[in-house]
Write a protein that binds this DNA or RNA. Structure first.
Lengths: 144, 144
DNA sequence: GATGAGATTGAGAATCACTCGCAAAATGGA
DNA sequence: TCCATTTTGCGAGTGATTCTCAATCTCATC
């Protein structure tokens, strides 16, 4: 199913309207492959002629999170960041503190162990975030 | 070694002064066992008669992080949160989305696997944060 | 113990990401 | 088409954090 169809279904189920602003934002999300923040998304939309108020962008992002189209990731420089999630497997992040590069990885064993930890504490997980900060291979070479 | 001695050493090594404000904040940190945020720390200090400007608290916390006395943890409600780290083992967090309770846990196998992931990507880790959000045993019982 | 260069502090203004309030406009089921 | 309901844009408001800068404190050195 296409994200847009899923999103329409989500809106209808919740008595919300599918507006042109929401359509535009969804297009922006799909276009921006990879991580983005509210401001970057707003800028990108402006570039393609879709000028929405930034309040609308901020107001709409949670809907996309709730519907599973995107998910919030580690915030950086005080800004909430997002990444597409629709149809993608869960993964975690390595974040280079020197160059800012973000490397995604997935490790099933790691996932399994986390579930075990939750069981041990009778904890029902909803989501988790693992972020490892350090130096990527490039920056690691350059010293310190 | 006591935290205060370690901290003095850290300051000297960096050409910084050991001031009464910093001593007071350190005392506050030690007193507040467990997680805290800048505002809570400021309030606590005020309660014991140490009235520092909140700018000073904000300015000083990074020094304690750098020196390894505390570390930043998952932020909550838009606030940066910290926990004591001096002399304590690393651990990760389960965070209840219903009641806000934070459960600490440690799993060596999990740590080991993360190192493996880093090796696989030639990534030199500096720190990592794993936060699992969900429902704790108490809140899980109450439904949904 | 006095001195001075440099570090630190307080108070309030400034930032910055984000949210709110409200009137005007868009949506969509009947 | 009509209208109750939802959205939007704008600008003002928030709340955490940071900055500015003059006054104050530290501490190595004298």
């Amino acid at each position: 199913m296409e994200p847009v169809d899923h999103f329409r279904g989500f809106l209808k189920k919740n008595g919300l309207a599918f507006t042109s602003a929401r359509a535009a934002i969804l297009k922006g999300i799909v276009a921006s492959r990879g991580h983005f923040d509210a401001d970057a998304l707003h800028e990108q939309l402006k570039r393609v002629g879709e000028s929405l108020s930034c309040a609308t962008v901020y107001r709409t992002l949670p809907l996309f999170v709730q519907s599973g189209i995107i998910k919030e990731t580690l915030r950086s420089k005080g800004r909430a960041r997002y990444e597409p999630a629709w149809g993608l497997e869960h993964h975690d992040h390595l974040e280079c503190v020197a160059c800012g590069r973000i490397i995604e990885f997935r490790d099933d064993e790691l996932e399994r162990l986390q579930d075990k930890v939750c069981q041990r504490h009778s904890f029902r997980p909803v989501e988790h975030r693992l972020g490892i900060r350090g130096y990527c291979s490039e920056c690691g070479k350059k010293g310190t």
